[in-house]
Nucleic acid binder design. Structure first.
Lengths: 240, 240
DNA sequence: CGTTATTTTGAGCTGTTTCAAGCGCCGTGG
DNA sequence: CCACGGCGCTTGAAACAGCTCAAAATAACG
């Protein structure tokens, strides 16, 4: 049942990585960068649907997404599941597990992807030595908390179409941060997964897409979405 | 309009605090404990409805709740608000602000309360020196992430009565952790606030309370709640 | 003890879900 | 190369959970 986790070992060079500015090595000197590279001893590859980790797995490392994307989801005892995040290149995944030394959610690749493994014990050690790395690690964890609060606001007080608009704008903004188009989106996830993330049924997501298209806000073709009217999309999210 | 933040300065002694085991000083030697106490130079008092901090305030410190309780909420541009947490004694508040050096939500006292101020720069400095403190700080942040994921599951995939049952069980469990009753709850928040937290309207919360009472699950009298049938409450949350 | 805020309850309404059917794309195999 | 089958997406119609509006009951407060 569980697909075999394909894994390749490759040497890492943060200094050459084009995600440098988004990822962990922010504001580091060349020397400090070198020490961070020394820490991360492997890059692993994943095919779509491969697990990066599963609920209950022992916690050893954080992972920096080098390419591709992952989704995280929490499972409820009764089989219900909730997608808690869609993560893109440059983002750090696995922070949930620090709390109990075992993963409280699971992470799956949404396409062919690569991650840099960051053994957490070594990362803590290094961050005791490099204050700017320590500070940055704290910022990354805090940013995750802020992100989650935003999703709570979305789930707790927005209606279906507001949620979808907020979702699309979020993708657009993260695309931009990576030097890609703000208006041309390639969705990596299904309507079912979007629905789970947004607290909606897949039919509702589909209807909202169709409605946006009728209104001339977007152009949808399954997983290819073009944002036509960003201002009106923003207005929709309630920034009125 | 903003109530004046009453604030008293008092010396702190973690070593004598009965929240020692819940709060920051976990697994510290006497010497390390002393250094942590030296860091926290003040205890501040708040009356009900006083702000601990507001959205946009400059970030300087985390706060350990010494007594009383706080709620945190995020505000949306259009006036909507979402309560993101109810925090009790022993819990750390303010983690959201590390990310941007300014608070992304606001925190209000729900009753007369006291907090220990923990200047974050000093806390980081100290945690570079004391690995077990560093680890514990990381665990606290990670725990907050896990907590938020749980709320996302609740908001994204539970129905009204399941949400309320989960909420009550969570309060019960945290009461227990503090040596109080698992079944006798004193709510500090209104139906409106519970509704905001659970993504429901206050009328829906009230109806769910009434329904639970009819079913013999709980005894409600406004803010006094007795949990009568814990097993059935648990079953209700879907641990089926 | 009157005034105000909070909670409860009712009745009708609405947005989202549920159930069901049809469509289109894509990979597989004939 | 085309037919077939499967999966994901769309769309419709009916059901329902939770919301809105309204009013009464109860608690909190000066």
């Amino acid at each position: 049942m569980p697909p075999p986790t394909s894994s390749k070992q490759l040497k890492i060079a943060c200094s050459n990585c084009n995600l440098r500015e988004l990822c962990l090595p922010v504001d580091l000197s060349a020397d400090e960068m070198g020490r961070l590279e020394a820490l991360s001893n492997s890059k692993r590859s994943f095919a779509a649907q491969d697990y990066l980790y599963r609920t209950g797995d022992h916690f050893k490392s954080l992972y920096a997404i080098h390419s591709g994307s992952f989704k995280t989801r929490v499972l409820h005892e009764d089989g219900r599941e909730q997608v808690t995040g869609f993560l893109m290149a440059g983002e750090i995944i696995g922070l949930d597990a620090i709390s109990t030394d075992s993963h409280t959610c699971e992470a799956l690749a949404m396409e062919a992807s690569e991650v840099c493994e960051l053994p957490f014990a070594k990362l803590e050690e290094l961050s005791r030595d490099i204050p700017s790395l320590q500070r940055h690690l704290h910022k990354i964890m805090s940013r995750e908390i802020v992100r989650d609060q935003g999703i709570m606001l979305l789930l707790g007080s927005m209606r279906a179409e507001e949620r979808l608009a907020a979702f699309l704008l979020n993708l657009s903004q993260r695309n931009t941060a990576r030097g890609f188009s703000a208006t041309q989106l390639q969705l990596r996830m299904s309507r079912l997964e979007i629905g789970s993330y947004l607290g909606l049924k897949l039919e509702t997501v589909s209807r909202a897409f169709s409605h946006f298209q009728e209104d001339g806000l977007i152009n949808v073709k399954i997983k290819t979405v073009e944002l036509i009217d960003l201002p009106r999309l923003r207005a929709l999210v309630g920034k009125s």
